[in-house]
Amino acid sequence: MFTEARRYFVERRVTDRIAETGATSFMNYFARLRSDLDGEVEKFINAFTVNETYFYREDYQLTCLTSDLLNERTRMKRPGEALRIWSIPCSTGEEPYSIAIWLLENWPQVDAHDVEIIGSDIDTNVLKEARTGIFGKRALMRLTPKLIDKYFVGAEPGRWQILDDLRQSVRFTAVNIVERSETRPLGAFDVIFCRNMLIYFDDSSRRVAAENLYENLSPGGYLCLGHTESMSRISPLFEVCRFPDAIVYRRPLEISHG
């Protein structure tokens, strides 16, 4: 699933796992992996997914979300119908919690709509951390002290826990983006954030991911990628939308034939 450029990284992680499990050789380790000894498959997946993330990362997209995307989406909703936002991959939760905080802070209509936020990642360790919601300085570096005061409580020195109320406002589920059987049950979203993951995939996995994302969007729903990523180079399924704050992708409203 990873490109050549990531090879070194992957090799390192595999070497780490071999050392950690006390396997005597790669073949020996591979045998453990195949028989899923001591839950090695999950540990293996967790070891080589990159989780670096922080609050308000690429916040121009959050600006775009509240100045344009959500207003477009609410216009298409029946009264009372919830807005659904998906953060995949969500890593340790910074992204979906950022979305929640950003909405509360910057979207005047937030009280008029139900908003459902789901965070997903393939790595169950990061999801555990996301649910706990305790973060260090580094993750909070882009938040003002005022925001930290408002949405976090001190947990231990140098660590802050996100407020319970907010914690309960994001649902976390384990999903592999290239497994359709795992993505489909989540249903259709109005906006999907899929940032800083597809760059690590090979062409074939990227295509499958793009098709899954397409299926998980309502017609007219929006897809936000990381700033170095471009869907036009992955898949023609989406339209490019240029908003003042960000370029995002959209599942077309009508299906074009031919």
Binding site: V110, D114, I117, Q168, S169, P185
Partner: peptide, 14 residues
């Protein structure tokens, strides 16, 4: 708070 709580629901797939 208008954010929906994280209760579990999952539509069936075929």
């Amino acid at each position: 708070m208008p954010l929906i709580k994280n209760t579990f629901h999952r539509p069936a797939s075929s």
